[in-house]
Design a protein around this nucleic acid. Structure first.
Lengths: 157, 157
DNA sequence: GTAATTCCTCAACCTAACTTGAGGTCAAGG
DNA sequence: CCTTGACCTCAAGTTAGGTTGAGGAATTAC
């Protein structure tokens, strides 16, 4: 009896609904919640209830992940969204622009690397000094404990 | 007394030497060995002995990692090098070209994504259908158990 | 010749980003 | 009402790419 109005019409979804809408696993959505990326309301029985606007939020997370951003970076970006009201298109545009800048940087970095590749790996010197491989901007990857050692100028000969 | 000739002059290095030359941690080089990326000889005492050509091999691994290739992809690439002789410049060029192709693909993918970004996240539709975000070529990332679910065409409305 | 390095192996630990499973509750349909 | 499926929490497992540490042997430096 807790919810008399049909959820769908009321723009309110269960976690299963949201999962189906976004293509994410239910467990992943819960995981994102533990990381502070979404904060759904709860109904009387303690079950999560999402708004339709959360679809966009989750989708943003998905896209960002595909672009290689970490959960933490995404969390930071989402934190700039207004908490008091449903984010507007302008809000999303702002975040989008910001991420695009990061993306531009990464594309430039990869392009530079690609252009150096033959002169680098192919040439027989493999000199990292020229390679500009030194600590690529916001790191394509950063696993493991501690920061990845910077590739310095101590190669070959 | 096992090694009378100075190692350096003999083009033979200890793991520590190689680590210093490449900027990698000793532990990382050993790790790469467990993954089949390098297979150094051993001296009488059981210590690893590397050739000068291994510097290039290790460097290639470093570069490839920075470019976002997985250990397995790198292993596969290195496996195409001749085992019987020291790889020539031609050998490295061939691998390099191959990797460059992958890199091109990734750059294209990211560029496409970047160009869609505003029309995607910013526009208010966030339609993944148009985003081409579906399973980016050779995967920017692939963590966790099992393959990442493909972002299908089931978004928003 | 011996002390200080360096190296060896093997097992355990680390982070990121999730998934899986156990044991139990909630909600919707008939 | 009561069964079935969706949800809940919490703990443990997974993969990639390594690092850290213990306990012991080999080299190098003086």
């Amino acid at each position: 009896m807790a919810e008399s109005v049909p959820r769908e019409a009321n723009q309110i979804m269960s976690i299963g609904d949201l999962a189906e809408r976004t293509g994410l696993a239910v467990s992943a959505i819960r995981f994102y919640e533990t990381k502070g990326l979404v904060t759904p309301a709860r109904n009387a029985g303690g079950q999560r209830r999402y708004l339709r606007s959360d679809i966009r939020r989750i989708s943003f997370i998905q896209v960002s992940q595909q672009l290689g951003f970490t959960i933490e970076q995404i969390r930071t970006a989402l934190a700039t969204l207004p908490a008091s009201r449903t984010p507007t298109q302008k809000d999303w545009e702002r975040i989008s622009r910001n991420f695009r800048a990061h993306l531009d940087e990464r594309i430039n970095c990869m392009t530079r690397l690609r252009d150096y590749l033959d002169g680098c790996i192919g040439c027989g010197c493999l000199s990292m000094k020229k390679c500009a491989l030194v600590n690529p901007a916001d790191g394509l990857k950063k696993y493991g404990a501690g920061a990845r050692a910077v590739i310095g100028d101590k190669l070959e000969r």
